[in-house]
Simulated scan of single mutants.
Amino acid sequence: MSVGTRPMKPLSVELRLRASRLDVRAQFRVAPGRVCALVGRAGSGKSGLLKAVAGMMPAQGGRVALGADAVYDSAARIDLPAHQRKLAWLDGHGHLVPHLSVRQNLLFGAQGSPHVGALTVVPDDIVNWLDLGGVLGQRPHQLPAAMRFKLALGRALISSPNALLLDDPLGQVPEAEHDALLDLLADVAARFRLPVVLVSPRMHDVIRLADDVVILHEGRVASAGPTAQILSDVSLSTFLEGLHAGSVLEGEVKRHDIEWLLSEVDLGGQRVSVPAMLHPVGTKVRVKLRARDVTLHRDVPVDTSCTNHVRGRITQIMLAGEHGVYGAVGIELDRSVDPLNPQVLPGLPLWGLLTRKSIQQMGWSPGQPCVVSFKAMALAVSAWR
């Protein structure tokens, strides 16, 4: 049996609901094969919205549809129960059946699926992909947390869902094992052509998995769009990670320096050094740089421990009030021009968090060229599917 070969439809959401005394009104759309992350501060309505999409929490109005087929439509009085929506739910608890074996838990996922039918043998492609072959006879309590997650994921996919909803799915797994499991999740959308919606308290998960993000703030959509663009927007920083907020830049691995245990990543034509990684040359990656780790200069500084100096131009300055301590400086990096394809492309955006004093003493203003400096160790890099 091959799971995920049927044509998939986009998931469209437009909902109103009450969640923890919060009035939530949000809409978004996820195409097959793409991952959309709902992000925002704690209490912004992310998990409540996801549960309402799944049919696990009542909505006050709106519509949830797969293509043209509504699973919830308040105007048309359509409200399918959760099991009929066929939107697979996966959270940190797994909800495995404790008295059933791994094999039986996997087969349990196929019950009632018109696309799968009555299975008596677990599909080899799922077992091999998740490396569950050696534990099929064991029960969930005998498995480590990472293996229980794989089992829950396999059961969800064998049910032949219309979409996959992830609510902090790695919440019960030791952090040291997250990267390998994130690689599996990154493979899901493309392998099974599913629309995937993710909620996670860890921005690293979002950077690794999401094609698009929807920022929720007090129950409303503050912004939405491609991950790198939205997460690098200085004007949205207040809705995200506070002092840990920064920029997400998409690039490509170009070289590995074995002697110094560093790697080089191309960011729009400018290369930066990052801690050595195992990703081969040519791998597409996302680089996270916190705004507080950025320093600005008129020219490339000398006698500094920073190894990365990229050129750009200031686009905006946002001060935290007239007498605030700090200000956010938006920057657009210079982009090298390919002589064979001389089209003008916008440079990668990033921003830095500087004191109001340093901004005024340096006389920074929009339109000025600058050099952005930061240490290699200030960068967090993850592969990007």
Rank of each mutant, 00 (worst) to 15 (best):
Pro58Lys: 10
Pro58Val: 10
Pro58Ser: 13
Pro58Arg: 12
Ala59Leu: 11
Ala59Met: 09
Gln60Gly: 15
Gly61Ile: 07
Gly62Cys: 15
Ala65Phe: 04
Ala65Asn: 05
Ala65Glu: 05
Ala65Asp: 01
Leu66Ile: 08
Leu66Pro: 00
Gly67His: 08
Gly67Glu: 04
Ala68Ser: 15
Asp69Gly: 07
Ala70Cys: 13
Ala70Asn: 05
Ala70His: 02
Val71Thr: 10
Val71His: 03
Tyr72Asn: 03
Tyr72Met: 11
Tyr72Trp: 06
Tyr72Pro: 06
Asp73Glu: 08
Asp73His: 11
Asp73Ala: 15
Ala76Asn: 08
Ile78Gly: 07
Ile78Asn: 11
Ile78Val: 15
Asp79Cys: 15
Leu80Tyr: 04
Leu80Phe: 07
Leu80Pro: 06
Pro81Thr: 07
Pro81Val: 07
Ala82Asp: 01
Ala82Ile: 01
His83Glu: 07
His83Arg: 12
Gln84Cys: 14
Gln84His: 12
Arg85Trp: 09
Lys86Asn: 06
Lys86Trp: 03
Lys86Ile: 03
Lys86Ser: 11
Lys86Cys: 01
Lys86Tyr: 02
Leu87Ser: 11
Leu87Val: 11
Ala88Cys: 09
Ala88Met: 09
Trp89Ile: 12
Leu90His: 06
Leu90Asp: 11
Leu90Trp: 07
Leu90Cys: 08
Leu90Glu: 14
Asp91Leu: 04
Asp91Cys: 13
Gly92Tyr: 09
Gly94Cys: 04
Gly94Ala: 03
His95Ile: 01
His95Gln: 14
Leu96Trp: 08
Leu96Asp: 03
Leu96Gln: 04
Pro98Thr: 08
Pro98Asn: 09
Pro98His: 10
Pro98Gln: 12
Pro98Trp: 06
His99Ala: 07
His99Gly: 02
His99Arg: 15
Leu100Met: 12
Leu100Gln: 07
Leu100Ser: 03
Ser101Glu: 00
Arg103Leu: 11
Gln104Cys: 10
Asn105Ala: 10
Asn105His: 03
Asn105Val: 02
Asn105Gln: 06
Asn105Cys: 08
Leu106Arg: 03
Phe108Gly: 01
Gly109Gln: 01
Gly109Pro: 05
Gly109Met: 00
Ala110Arg: 01
Gly112Met: 01
Ser113Arg: 12
Pro114Asp: 03
Pro114Gly: 11
Pro114Gln: 13
His115Phe: 13
Val116Thr: 13
Gly117Thr: 02
Leu119Val: 03
Thr120Ser: 10
Thr120Arg: 13
Thr120Ala: 04
Thr120Lys: 12
Thr120Asp: 08
Val121Ile: 06
Val121Gln: 14
Val121His: 15
Val121Lys: 09
Val122Glu: 00
Val122Asn: 00
Val122Arg: 00
Asp124Ile: 00
Asp125Cys: 09
Ile126Lys: 02
Ile126Met: 02
Ile126Glu: 00
Val127Thr: 05
Asn128Trp: 01
Asn128Lys: 05
Trp129Lys: 04
Leu132Asn: 09
Leu132Lys: 00
Leu132Thr: 05
Leu132Met: 07
Leu132Glu: 01
Gly134His: 02
Val135Asp: 06
Leu136His: 05
Gly137Asp: 14
Gln138Cys: 06
Gln138Gly: 04
Pro140Asn: 11
His141Ile: 14
Gln142Lys: 13
Leu143Asp: 02
Leu143Gln: 10
Pro144Cys: 05
Pro144His: 08
Ala145His: 12
Ala145Glu: 12
